[in-house]
């Protein structure tokens, strides 16, 4: 029982991170029907920028409390990622908005490759370690070990998700986003500045990605130029699982995928008598993705067209 509970905790924390990254995919897809392949890389850049700031601060002000240092890292990473996403959209996607669908997808792959390799040139190929700044308080609950950081990740993820939902449902910008998602042309006629709305979507997604990036590297204690790619694919799978274009769906899909991966990797060996094992952990996400797309392309929560932003 304690093992099962621990796996559930593992899965929920992992799933919260997937969910946060999935938001970026789901928002952009909702509006542009574009898989922003580079979104995972934006997450990685967020982690890297934050780590650089943390490194500088630790050298300049060694007496600063650890939490403050990490917070400062996040606060610099967010605008950096926002600017990056703004630039990517403007340079690589906007000119192709009317081109055949294959074109922006190929550009997205290209941007992803460029960001990875730029990060490698700037921050090196080695894994960068996250300094032990955050308190390592642990609780034991029914035999499962839970750390303060894990609780913080889940709480923060849920808060961000709720905030975003409010933004999309209640604010003026949110209404413009939903209108644009339905029909760019009609939205434009109704006085919505479509270009600005699309930029805003990219920027909001990037801000969330920056936070997710720092979370990942704090949680696992490292960052690497390659970390964004697989994370992005998993997060995209999560978005599709929940129903792409749907914010609550991204949350649900992320958490579910995290739990599926944890339970799958933890139990598949025992269930299949060793025939399949944890070496197939990465297969689960793809398998879920394929099953959902084939049998229920609209995802678990379906695509409520009015709520696609």
């Amino acid at each position: 029982m304690d093992i099962f509970l621990q796996q559930l905790v593992n899965g929920l924390v992992l799933g919260s991170i997937y969910a946060l990254v999935a938001l970026g995919y789901t928002m952009v897809y909702g509006i542009l029907e574009l898989i922003n392949f580079a979104h995972g890389e934006v997450t990685m850049i967020g982690a890297m920028v934050a780590l650089s700031v943390i490194g500088v601060l630790m050298g300049a002000a060694p007496d600063l409390p650890g939490v403050m240092v990490v917070l400062a890292g996040i606060l610099v990473a967010i605008p950096a990622c926002m600017a990056l996403a703004f630039g990517i959209e403007k340079i690589a996607y906007r000119p192709l908005r009317k081109a055949p669908r294959l074109a922006p997808l190929i550009t997205a792959i290209g941007v992803s490759i460029i960001l990875q390799n730029l990060a490698m040139l700037i921050w090196g190929r080695q894994y960068v370690s996250f300094p032990p700044l955050l308190p390592t308080i642990r609780f034991e609950f029914l035999g499962a070990h839970i750390s303060l950081l894990q609780i913080a990740i889940v709480v923060l993820a849920v808060t961000i998700m709720a905030g975003l939902w409010l933004l999309v449902e209640k604010s003026r910008l949110g209404r413009a986003m939903r209108a644009t998602a339905q029909s760019k042309e009609v939205a434009q006629l109704m006085g919505v500045n479509v270009d600005r709305v699309i930029s805003a979507t990219f920027i909001i997604g990037a801000a969330i990605a920056a936070i997710a990036g720092v979370m990942v590297s704090a949680y696992y204690g490292l960052a690497h130029y390659y970390m964004g790619f697989m994370l992005g694919l998993k997060a995209f799978s999560a978005a599709v699982l929940g129903g792409i274009g749907n914010i609550a769906g991204a949350m649900l899909g992320g958490l579910l995928l995290g739990v599926i991966e944890a339970l799958g990797a933890g139990y598949i060996g025992d269930i299949t008598g060793g025939f399949l094992g944890s070496h197939y952990q990465d297969v689960f996400a793809f398998f879920v993705l394929i099953l959902v797309l084939v049998f229920r392309p609209s995802g678990l929560l379906g695509e409520r067209v009015a709520n696609r932003a």
Binding site: Q7, N10, L14, H224, A262, G266, G269, Q281
Partner: peptide, 9 residues
């Protein structure tokens, strides 16, 4: 980077 599931198992 995530080994929690296999380590828990």
């Amino acid at each position: 980077t995530d080994f929690n599931a296999i380590l828990t198992s």
